[in-house]
Amino acid sequence: MRTLTSSTTRRRLAPLLVTFSACAVLSGAMTPAAFADDARSHEWYLDAMQADSMWKVSSGQGVTVAVVDSGVDPSAPELQGQLVPGEDLNDGKAGETEDRTGHGTEMAALIAGTGAGGGIQGLAPRAKILPLRYNVKAPSMDTAPRGIRYAVDHGARIINMSFGIELPGEIPGLREAIDYADRKGVLMFASSGNAGDKDNVITAPASMAGVVAVGAVDKSLTVTKWSNHGSELALAAPGDDIPMRCANGEGYCSSGGTSQATALASASAALVWSAHPGWTGNQVLRALIETAGRPTEGKVPSEYVGYGFVRPRMVLLEHQGDPGAANVYPLPNGPASASSSPAPSKAGQAVSSAPQHGEAEAAAGSGNTTLWVLLGLGAAVVVGGVAAFVVRRRSA
């Protein structure tokens, strides 16, 4: 049986004075905190990733990101002027800008929202969005493949797929479309899924070679227990307590899921690619892998964080990350259509270099409960003078 999920959970908040906290069903804890009713005060991920500093170098200009989702509403203030013509992948009657669920609009805003009108501020606000609409309630087997091919043929450098299809195997048409995108040098990011504390099956297309599978971390810099994990996972990004407009359009809601993490990973790639327009997709991805926050101990890639937490600022501000060969795919599970090689050799080493700009080198935890990793996003969360991520391992 096939099911398709959007990898997002949303929680209603009060329209004037909101309680913005981790949803119990997602994080397992409720720690309410009152905030003024504006999106920016909730966008912790921008501060954590040092977005203001990065935007002095790159804000995504010149890069188009295709959003294969439920459509994108151009009337959202923060998305006005941000869209290029897209396509309705269903029956063509609705149009790519009709979004009945709001999910696609949310993902587009996280990537390229300008913050206009008090709306969502995206991580790559000068990138363009190519909206590709599918029917989330009745997806057809060829919807995603057609979306990928359309994105490639219409100038997208990055394809964001914040959805997952539970399948016993691969869809032949999807495999061919992914290979086509890889041959054309297009980067694809997909959400790993939100059942890490349940059946924990990384969904397609994230599970497929040639696609970057993304996991989620929460506001406390903890890998969420519901973020799907496994050998396919490549990177992790912020994905919990993310502000989005409530379904009725009144005020903001707290949302969470690997959907949001995927959008921020796509935006991170847009920032790097914009700053280095001569790089190939392989080089952009390799730079993100090389500069990701690494576990101080343990196997890399980790089944919980992949090669680590995406840190575009390390490429943009610290000038780190060797782009390497232009035609070599940087993940070991490379597509058949592209050359592949193991990730950079230093990825398997414990992080032992001196912290930079307030980063802290964390010690590895013992037993099967936690694994501490170096983040270096910035001073988003400081506990006892250090900032770090915690990966909570799922008990047997």
Rank of each mutant, 00 (worst) to 15 (best):
residue 193 G to L: 03
residue 185 G to F: 11
residue 166 E to Q: 13
residue 239 G to W: 12
residue 205 P to V: 04
residue 171 I to P: 02
residue 246 C to V: 09
residue 180 Y to N: 05
residue 167 L to C: 09
residue 178 I to E: 07
residue 180 Y to D: 01
residue 226 W to F: 15
residue 186 V to A: 03
residue 164 G to T: 01
residue 199 D to M: 05
residue 249 G to L: 02
residue 191 S to M: 01
residue 212 V to H: 03
residue 165 I to W: 12
residue 172 P to K: 08
residue 199 D to V: 14
residue 197 D to P: 07
residue 242 I to T: 05
residue 170 E to Y: 15
residue 175 R to Q: 14
residue 190 A to M: 01
residue 159 I to D: 02
residue 222 T to A: 12
residue 148 I to E: 00
residue 165 I to R: 07
residue 230 G to D: 15
residue 246 C to W: 06
residue 186 V to R: 00
residue 198 K to R: 15
residue 240 D to Q: 13
residue 196 G to C: 08
residue 192 S to P: 07
residue 237 A to H: 10
residue 188 M to P: 04
residue 161 M to V: 02
residue 218 D to I: 06
residue 223 V to D: 04
residue 173 G to Q: 15
residue 163 F to N: 00
residue 210 G to C: 03
residue 200 N to W: 10
residue 188 M to T: 04
residue 206 A to P: 03
residue 157 R to A: 14
residue 155 G to F: 05
residue 238 P to R: 02
residue 169 G to P: 10
residue 198 K to D: 06
residue 179 D to A: 13
residue 248 N to W: 07
residue 250 E to C: 08
residue 164 G to K: 09
residue 185 G to C: 04
residue 178 I to K: 04
residue 200 N to L: 06
residue 182 D to S: 15
residue 151 A to W: 05
residue 242 I to C: 03
residue 171 I to W: 05
residue 239 G to I: 12
residue 163 F to L: 14
residue 227 S to V: 06
residue 196 G to A: 09
residue 205 P to W: 05
residue 234 A to T: 11
residue 192 S to T: 13
residue 229 H to Y: 10
residue 201 V to A: 01
residue 160 N to S: 15
residue 184 K to C: 11
residue 156 A to I: 02
residue 238 P to A: 08
residue 222 T to C: 13
residue 231 S to P: 14
residue 168 P to M: 09
residue 178 I to L: 03
residue 190 A to D: 10
residue 191 S to N: 00
residue 214 V to I: 13
residue 244 M to Y: 10
residue 200 N to Y: 06
residue 213 A to L: 02
residue 214 V to Q: 00
residue 181 A to W: 07
residue 202 I to P: 11
residue 192 S to N: 07
residue 184 K to T: 11
residue 205 P to C: 11
residue 220 S to H: 12
residue 170 E to W: 14
residue 194 N to C: 08
residue 174 L to A: 08
residue 218 D to P: 05
residue 205 P to D: 14
residue 226 W to V: 15
residue 157 R to Q: 15
residue 210 G to A: 08
residue 200 N to Q: 02
residue 177 A to I: 00
residue 214 V to G: 00
residue 155 G to W: 10
residue 175 R to I: 07
residue 226 W to T: 12
residue 212 V to Q: 09
residue 250 E to I: 01
residue 225 K to F: 08
residue 235 L to T: 10
residue 223 V to M: 10
residue 177 A to P: 01
residue 250 E to S: 08
residue 171 I to A: 01
residue 196 G to F: 04
residue 214 V to T: 07
residue 228 N to K: 05
residue 155 G to K: 09
residue 148 I to L: 07
residue 237 A to F: 04
residue 193 G to A: 04
residue 194 N to E: 09
residue 156 A to K: 00
residue 169 G to D: 11
residue 248 N to R: 08
residue 206 A to E: 11
residue 156 A to N: 00
residue 230 G to V: 09
residue 233 L to Q: 03
residue 174 L to D: 06
residue 248 N to G: 04
residue 195 A to P: 08
residue 210 G to V: 04
residue 170 E to F: 15
residue 210 G to E: 01
residue 231 S to N: 10
residue 235 L to N: 02
residue 223 V to R: 13
residue 196 G to M: 04
residue 210 G to S: 07
residue 189 F to C: 03
residue 171 I to G: 05
residue 216 A to E: 14
residue 160 N to G: 10
residue 189 F to Y: 01
residue 191 S to W: 01
residue 217 V to S: 15
residue 235 L to G: 02
residue 201 V to R: 11
residue 240 D to H: 12
residue 161 M to P: 02
residue 178 I to T: 10
residue 205 P to I: 06
